[in-house]
Structure formats: structure tokens, C-alpha cells
Amino acid sequence: MAAPATPPVRDRDPEGRARNARPRDGLGRPLPYGVPGVERQPEGVPRTPAESLVEAQRLLDAGMPFHAHEVLEDAWKAADGPERGLWRGMAQLAVGLTHAARGNSAGGAALLRRGAENIAEYRTTPPYDIDITGLHEWAESLAAALAGTTTPIDLTTNTPRLVTA
């Protein structure tokens, strides 16, 4: 009879929640242990909506949409009421861009469309100077361009502006 398998040791955070401590690249892909990676965004950082948008834009401009997604996801989790859909949609746009940059065109397009759908209701009264119309058009256009491709997109030419100038 074979010995019972030993369960793998799981990475845990200080509160005991399972976390993958492997380093990650700028697009959030796991790297082998011991390889230098990009510092992760801390989770649960309280930010104002304006601070969230500034930090997310900084990360997008640095070619790190996965990390921008983490910032926008924090805003989503912290929001209550009707703004939850706004921040959820914004996070979906960033993770859709992440998938497109990784070469997962189908997943990227689906998330870009879902994010565009979630922010669409804010077109008439865009909060926090968010360029809802521009983001919606960008997401729909990029999602259409991704159809049938598997080539990762170039982030330098496909990164959106989150707020109006």
C-alpha cells in the first residue's frame, strides 16, 4: 500500500489566508520561486476614488494593467451602493487589458466587453471625471480588434486614459 500523499505546503499571509507568494512579472504572471519579479500591489489599501484613479493610471502607463486591476478591485470592494458596478467595470477593463497583453485575446475581449457594459450606465453623469464614453469606446474597439488573434497587444499604443483631461 502506498503512503498517503503529503499535501503541498501553501503560501499563507499573516492572517493565514492562502496566498501565492511566487514572484510575478509586470502582467501578473507567476514566475518561478527565487526569480526577481515586480513588486505586488498591496491589497486592501484605503484610497479615495481620485487616489485610486491616479494610482491605476500610473500602473497602466507603466505597462502593468494587472496591478492597476488590483487597485481598481480595492475600490470595488470598498464601494457601496451603485458605485460598486462602476469600480467593478473599471477593474474588468484593466484585467481585460491584462489578458490581451498576455495574448489571451478571447478572454481579454470578453472582459473588455463586460467592463464596458458595467460602466455604460455612468455615461450621462460620469463620476470623478472618469472618461466613461472614451473608455467604453476604447474597450469595444479593442475587443473587436482582438477577434481571431492570439498575438499579445502592445500596451504602449493600447493603454487608455481613465479621466478626462
Results as ranks from 00 to 15, higher is better:
129 D>N: 04
23 P>R: 08
130 I>S: 02
97 L>M: 10
87 W>D: 08
10 R>F: 03
147 A>R: 11
152 P>Y: 00
93 L>M: 04
6 T>R: 02
165 A>W: 04
36 P>A: 05
46 P>K: 09
103 G>L: 02
20 N>D: 15
62 A>P: 12
56 A>H: 01
105 S>H: 15
72 L>T: 07
94 A>F: 12
147 A>D: 14
152 P>S: 02
154 D>I: 02
96 G>E: 11
26 G>R: 08
14 P>K: 03
76 W>N: 00
47 R>E: 02
81 G>E: 12
73 E>L: 15
102 R>C: 09
129 D>R: 10
164 T>N: 09
33 Y>W: 06
69 H>A: 14
44 G>W: 05
122 Y>W: 11
127 P>I: 14
42 P>E: 12
66 F>V: 10
19 R>T: 11
18 A>V: 07
144 A>P: 07
150 T>R: 15
97 L>I: 09
55 E>G: 06
131 D>G: 11
10 R>D: 04
36 P>E: 05
94 A>N: 07
13 D>M: 13
150 T>Q: 15
59 L>G: 13
80 D>A: 10
134 G>Y: 10
80 D>M: 12
73 E>M: 15
77 K>A: 15
17 R>V: 10
72 L>F: 05
139 A>F: 05
64 M>V: 14
161 R>L: 11
107 G>E: 04
15 E>K: 12
146 L>W: 05
146 L>E: 03
5 A>W: 07
67 H>F: 01
28 G>S: 09
115 G>M: 11
90 M>L: 04
8 P>G: 07
145 A>L: 13
95 V>C: 12
58 R>S: 04
156 T>Q: 02
151 T>A: 14
85 G>V: 04
133 T>A: 14
33 Y>G: 04
142 L>V: 13
124 T>R: 13
123 R>I: 14
123 R>M: 10
63 G>P: 07
22 R>E: 00
101 A>I: 02
68 A>Y: 08
76 W>V: 00
138 W>Q: 08
24 R>A: 12
134 G>W: 10
145 A>G: 06
108 G>E: 13
161 R>F: 06
90 M>A: 05
154 D>V: 00
42 P>W: 09
49 P>E: 10
82 P>M: 14
163 V>Q: 01
97 L>P: 12
123 R>F: 05
151 T>K: 12
165 A>I: 02
31 L>W: 00
14 P>E: 11
138 W>T: 13
